[in-house]
Write a protein that binds this DNA or RNA. Structure first.
Lengths: 171, 171
DNA sequence: CTCTATTTGATATAGTGAATAACAATTATC
DNA sequence: GATAATTGTTATTCACTATATCAAATAGAG
């Protein structure tokens, strides 16, 4: 809660930008003004940074955030079909086809014709997929989430995730 | 801080997902598993929701989040050139040209040849641009940010923005 | 059971955002 | 004064997203 308080306390003492600075600021970096208080703006900038860091950490395994989330979901819910997995992640079915083509061609997962419904493909991780996912999880935990936890403090990181989840769920 | 605490306290009592539920969950929604704890995932989902709400609220003015941020920045920093405004927002100069074409063709801003450096275009809001931006600000404050503040609590909303800004700044 | 409607995975296609290379005009630098 | 760097611009490419449509398979109504 320490970082939280220090962050919150920073709200009021935030340097007031010189009111009538119409043309005063020369060669200085432009002033963000009210943009700094817009949740959507900081949300997008932060998301880009976090994804950037994720990709950097995941370079040896060549997994994008989306691909990692697909592997995680298949591992946690084996036997689901494409429609179920795609819709859970908010991915359109046509776009999910290409994603699966990529993962399957790399030998990380397989599509199996369902015995009960021969329209659908049951998704499963291969051994290689499980091994890759395990290594990916360790990388993410050790180098990515650990860095965020160090930056924010673990309790703040957790609070942040909870607030973001609430926005995604209830807004 | 109430909501913050309630959110934080939810961390431990979070419903443990049934361990050996390999194939048990049928016709139930797939389980997110470790995805729910990934900051990048909740960050992206929340960002999509927030932008969606922003666009909905801004429908009468037909401004995207990016366009709104450009108008805000020009208002706050009149006389800046395209390179300065674009780089402040993390927009590539070539892509910023199209954005400005759109805003200028709608009569919201103008490019003026700088007297001191005739390579650069000085950016200024038009009267219409100022009026539109003022209406946009009111819409955002009254219908968009207010909704987020209601959802999270104002103090939590502020803390959230501060944490996101810290990530964007220091990660 | 048959006919129709729905679902699933897939293809094609289009729109948007973002990135790089290259260019003319202008300015800065040596 | 010759060369390098900067500004706005164009063209182009790539990734991601969204919609319409299709064949195969299933579900449902009569």
């Amino acid at each position: 809660m320490v970082v939280t308080k220090s962050l919150a306390s920073r709200v009021k003492p935030a340097r007031m930008q010189p009111k009538a600075a119409a043309e005063a600021s020369e060669d200085l970096p432009p002033n963000l003004g009210e943009l700094a208080d817009l949740l959507g703006y900081s949300l997008k900038r932060a998301q880009l940074r976090v994804f950037e860091d994720f990709l950097r950490v995941m370079t040896p395994l060549q997994l994008t955030p989306a691909q990692f989330s697909v592997l995680l979901l298949i591992e946690k819910n084996p036997g689901r079909n494409q429609t179920e997995v795609a819709s859970t992640l908010g991915i359109q079915r046509p776009n999910f086809v290409t994603m699966l083509d990529s993962l399957e061609s790399r030998g990380l997962c397989v599509r199996l014709r369902s015995a009960s419904d021969r329209r659908s493909h049951v998704l499963m991780l291969t051994d290689k997929g499980r091994a890759t996912l395990m290594r990916a999880k360790k990388l993410v935990a050790a180098k990515h989430e650990a860095r965020l936890s160090e930056l924010l403090g673990e309790s703040n990181r957790v609070v942040l995730v909870q607030m973001l989840a609430k926005i995604a769920r209830e807004l």
